[in-house]
Amino acid sequence: MSAGSPLGAAMAVLQRDLLLAIRTRRELVNPILFFVLVVSLFPLGVSPEQSLLRALGPGVLWVAALLATLLSLDGLFRSDFEDGSLEQMLISPQPLGMLVLAKILAHWLVTGLPLLLVTPLLATLLALPDHALPVLLTTLVLGTPVLSLVGAIGVALTVGLRRGGALLSLLVLPLYVPVLIFGSNAVSSAAAEIPVTGQLYMLGAMLALALTLAPIAAAAALRISLH
């Protein structure tokens, strides 16, 4: 695979982004910490009652994962925009969609995937039944990439703006609603020992759709906002 082929270029971008992420390890922890903190606020704010936590748990975990993703989204294109490498990608002969997909994948690997590591711990804190844990992890594996992919469109639209943060959440959160609904519903159904194949298929379908369309939309959005 040569560096000149689209796939080679995408791999190079992926490698570069992962390397950059590993070299600034401190920032890797931020989404995880945020995830843990938000979840641990709920028992304090609502009630430490086990039965109540069990009912709220799936929704709380999913909302917290969603917010953690939202918080980390800004880093997706920000540094590349500031040092000009994003513009180099725009004028490179490689298809921009592929490069964007590689960047999103790298972003998910360093911000979305680590959330899974602390999820079992948080599930215990929220008194989620053990048999619902595999379903929770599966929904997160299927759902958080969708959040990164859809979020990338929003970031691409706002990267050129000085105060894009508040606008970004307005653009992105409504689009996250289906993932939230199916993700948290699958977990609460699994906790009640109801079959969840339907919800998982829906999440998988949304992932397939986002994987195919979101990079194209994000690439188009980048071309506009860096115009």
């Binding site: 653009l171 689009l175 609603v177 289906p178 609904i181 939309a217 959005a221 506009i224």
Partner: peptide
């Protein structure tokens, strides 16, 4: 630029509205 950025968002919304509605 603003109009074109908003156009992208409106189109993304069109893909999403049925998904949101049915979910």
């Amino acid at each position: 630029t603003g109009a074109r950025a908003a156009a992208v968002l409106a189109l993304v919304g069109v893909v999403n509205i049925p998904i949101i509605h049915y979910s």
